[in-house]
Every structure is written in structure tokens, then in C-alpha cells.
């Protein structure tokens, strides 16, 4: 049950931490920017998977929160000169969280397919607002941001420098992603999972499932908003693309390619997606078509995503090494059951 006691995963965590810390010494310029992008989209995808993989809520509108965070930080920095960077990010995240709460109050009145449909409709509404309210959002031209320097006690980080921004995003988003991982073991994290399994029974065990769902939805909105705000600081620019259905599709593809059945799935998916996109877009303009076909193939043939393939392969090698233990295999299939 307590995976944190597993020495292998603890060692793996430290290894990842050390590698991430020294990465700017190895990678330069564009390569480092790609890694930064992966970190940003990892949080976006992890927040999405808390909805899809853990709570079983299929949303086609996660970009409305990503985009709200992205615009909020840009607008704040434009209108309040001298606003400290971290305060701007905090305010943008808070604003997105509040937005998520309001939207959630409306959307969570329905479940299942109607919920999926409404998330898409609301995403379209947010997009339309961003286009129409051009005095605030810059409309089709977008907004250019001049991210202020970040002065900490000892060091000063300049968001316009690649390595500085890398460390900045790692320092902010890394702990948040770790919290999300921790969250899956908390009372609320487990409750969300149990509700996906059998919401009706949860009600008869004293759980206010409506409130729990709203609470989770609000959390994931806030997380997506945080990712969005760092995203627009990273590019020092935000366009209406950030709040479009395409950006929802992006997170959906990332999460699904990586696999919804494991916490690390969306992170893996974000990495694979960004590097694949980077690779394909150099070959052809029609890379979205290839992504789409890849996505359909995965829906058809590997519903567990890359993590599902890895798990399957691990099980296969394990079963070859020793006599098959059926019970163990059964447990692995239910990664979420926390065995």
C-alpha cells in the first residue's frame, strides 16, 4: 500500500531529482527549452489525469483553465507594473481556481457524456470571450509579456534566460507535481478513486460525493491554471491558442498516449508528445494528422497507453523468469487500487 517505502522508487526519485538539477550543464539553448516545456505540460497533463484517470471524469475543456491562467498572469503583469513574478503567478492561479469553482458548480450538475459535452461547450465559450474581449486579451494578436526578474535573498533569476527559467519552473512545478503524487494517497485522493468505482455506495457511507467532485474539479482547474501561467511566462507571450480546443486536445493526447492508469503516465506522455511533435513538425506540416492517427490507434489497440505497454512487458518478463503468480498479476492490473 505505501509505495513511498519502496526503496527502488525512493532511489529512482532521488536519481530523477539529481538529473533534473544538473541538466542545464548538459543541455543548452533549444534542448533545454524543450525540457522546460515538458515540465510545464507535465503538470497540465497530471492535473488532467486526476480528472480522467483517477476520478473518471472525461473533460474536453481543460484548456479553459490552462488558458485562463495563461491570460491572467499576462494581464496582471501588463496592468500592474512592478508586480512581483511569484505574486502574479499566485494571483493567476487563485483566479483560475475560483473560475474552476464557478464552472464546476454549473457543469457538475450532470455526469458522464453530458458532462463531456458541456466541458467542450464551455471551452468554446471561454475561447469566444477571449477573442471578443480583445481590449483585455489582445484578441487575435495575443499579449506580449515582459516577465520581471525574480529577486530572492541570494540570487536573482532572469526569466528571459533559458537555464534560469528552467530552474524557476522546476522549483515551482516540481513540488506541485510531487504534491499531486502525494495527493493520490491522501483521504481525498482515495475518495475520488472510490467514487469512480461506485459513487452510489460512497453516498451511503457518509460521503458527500457532489461536493467531493466539485472540490476535485476546482483543484485540477487551479493546477491547470498554474501550468498555464508558467507557460505564458516561458514564451513571454500568450495567444488565444492557449485557451482553444486544440490545447485541450493536446492535453488529452498527452495523457492518453502516456497512459491514464498510472501517476507517471501523463508525465511520460507530455515528454513523448513534445519530442514527437518537435520531430514530426520538422518533417511535415501535417504533424497533427499523424498525432491524430497515432491517438486513434492507441485508443483501439493500447487503451492503457505507454505505461500500459511497459507494465505489460514487465509482467511478461516477470512471468518468464519465475512461475506465474496469478494473484500478483491481477493486482498489477489494478494499479489504482493501491495494493
Amino acid at each position: 500500500m505505501a509505495r513511498s517505502h519502496n526503496p527502488v522508487s525512493r532511489f529512482g526519485l532521488w536519481a530523477v531529482f539529481v538529473i533534473l538539477a544538473v541538466l542545464p550543464l548538459i543541455l543548452r539553448g533549444y534542448q533545454l527549452r524543450l525540457v522546460t516545456e515538458v515540465i510545464i505540460f507535465s503538470l497540465y497533463a497530471v492535473s488532467y489525469n486526476l480528472l480522467l484517470g483517477y476520478a473518471g471524469l472525461l473533460s474536453f475543456g481543460h484548456a479553459m483553465f490552462f488558458g485562463t491562467g495563461a491570460f491572467a498572469v499576462a494581464i496582471l503583469l501588463e496592468h500592474f507594473a512592478g508586480l512581483p513574478l511569484l505574486l502574479a503567478v499566485t494571483l493567476a492561479t487563485a483566479f483560475t481556481t475560483a473560475t474552476g469553482f464557478v464552472v464546476g458548480c454549473l457543469l457538475l450538475r450532470v455526469k458522464g457524456t453530458p458532462f463531456a459535452l458541456l466541458t467542450l461547450a464551455f471551452n468554446a465559450l471561454f475561447y469566444a470571450i477571449a477573442v471578443k474581449w480583445s481590449s483585455l486579451t489582445g484578441g487575435d494578436d495575443g499579449l506580449i509579456i515582459d516577465p520581471p526578474q525574480l529577486d530572492l535573498w541570494l540570487l536573482t533569476l532572469d526569466p528571459n534566460k533559458g537555464p534560469d527559467f528552467y530552474y524557476l519552473s522546476l522549483a515551482i512545478l516540481g513540488p506541485v507535481i510531487l504534491f499531486c503524487w502525494y495527493f493520490t494517497y491522501t483521504a481525498m485522493g482515495r475518495t475520488v478513486l472510490l467514487m469512480r468505482e461506485n459513487e452510489d455506495r460512497m453516498r451511503f457511507l457518509g460521503y458527500n460525493t457532489l461536493l467531493a467532485r466539485l472540490s476535485l474539479f476546482t483543484l485540477t482547474a487551479g493546477l491547470a491554471g498554474l501550468a498555464g501561467s508558467i507557460y505564458s511566462l516561458f514564451f513571454a507571450f500568450v495567444s488565444i491558442d492557449a485557451i482553444s480546443i486544440e490545447t485541450t486536445t493536446t492535453v488529452l493526447l498527452m495523457t492518453f498516449i502516456g497512459g491514464t492508469g498510472h501517476f507517471a503516465g501523463p508525465i511520460l506522455g507530455a515528454g513523448v508528445f513534445i519530442y514527437l511533435q518537435n520531430f514530426l513538425s520538422e518533417l511535415t506540416e501535417n504533424w497533427p494528422l499523424i498525432m491524430g492517427v497515432l491517438f486513434i490507434l492507441m485508443v483501439l489497440f493500447t487503451p492503457g497507453g505507454l505505461v500500459g505497454i511497459i507494465k505489460g512487458a514487465a509482467q511478461w518478463t516477470a512471468s518468464r523468469r519465475k512461475t506465474p503468480d496469478l494473484r500478483k498479476g491481477a493486482k498489477n492490473r489494478h494499479a489504482h487500487s493501491g495494493s
Binding site: 480522467l52 473518471g56 472525461l58 488529452l252 497533427p288 491524430g292 491517438f295 486513434i296
Partner: peptide
């Protein structure tokens, strides 16, 4: 249902791109 929705969503994405192509 989730997979059915994902499939039709992915299909929409492909058709939209194919039309542009």
C-alpha cells in the same frame, strides 16, 4: 463510454486535419 467518446473525438481531429490537407 469514455473510450467511445475519445474515439469520436480523435476522429473529428483527424477529419479536420485531413480536410485542410
Amino acid at each position: 463510454h469514455v473510450h467511445e467518446l475519445l474515439l469520436t473525438f480523435g476522429l473529428a481531429y483527424i477529419i479536420d486535419e485531413a480536410v485542410k490537407l
